[in-house]
Design a protein around this nucleic acid. Structure first.
Lengths: 114, 114
DNA sequence: TTACAATATATAAGATACTTAAATATACTG
DNA sequence: CAGTATATTTAAGTATCTTATATATTGTAA
């Protein structure tokens, strides 16, 4: 499991990317999906996830639809038009961030096959 | 410039990696180096950097040597033996983190050349 | 049948890490 | 002589996350 310090700050982008990829998802499903994709290395806590979802909704980046499934409430989140453009920005930023980290962690990548 | 939210949590690892790479560095030099390596995309603020350096010193991960250069104090930081093993751990974690992010941001990387 | 695990969301209290801003001081450049 | 670069420090505030707890249903194993 990866130190939670590292994950801080990436949560919003992760959530938005998953919603773009999967159309609509509910909170619990998002935590499952992240665990699945990262082979258990990243686990989102509900105390972090739900407040982020609520905040993104209040910012009109996400909209919700409540549904009943087996007597359990499921609150599906999906991107608004504004949300779609936010994802584009966030992913661009994430990509630059990863590239920057790699330049620090692995300087002179061009020499790997030299 | 990358949103500071993303960088949060990576600061410690970045500092430790640079010190491993360069032997010893002073605070100001670290901010310059990060800017240089990331082409200005990551800028460390002094308010974040110096407290981290002090903390790492108190944890015996770093040691300091104060020197005088042109009437300016320079406090050089370098890794302790403990620091070297901390870097190894932190870099492993960082690598897993980057890989995990890529699995989310860019699912099915194996298909890129398929 | 009872207890535990999984599903599903919510939120309060506390910790921590970072931003912003200001302070201090010297050297160099136009 | 004003502004930029060098160099470190630290206080106050904010944001974000962790931890813990609450609630409720369904499925499973003993």
């Amino acid at each position: 499991m990866i130190s939670t310090d590292l994950i801080k700050g990436s949560l919003k982008t992760i959530v938005l990317k998953l919603l773009e990829e999967n159309g609509r998802m509910y909170g619990y499903e998002i935590t499952r999906k992240v665990e699945e994709l990262t082979e258990g290395k990243i686990k989102l806590t509900y105390g972090a996830l739900y407040p982020v979802l609520h905040k993104l909704e209040s910012e009109e980046v996400l909209v919700t639809e409540s549904e009943n499934f087996n007597n359990r409430i499921r609150i599906y989140y999906s991107l608004t038009p504004k949300g779609h453009s936010v994802v584009v920005e966030k992913l661009k930023e994430m990509k630059e961030f990863i590239e920057s980290l790699e330049k620090i962690v692995n300087p002179q990548p061009g020499l790997r096959y030299a």
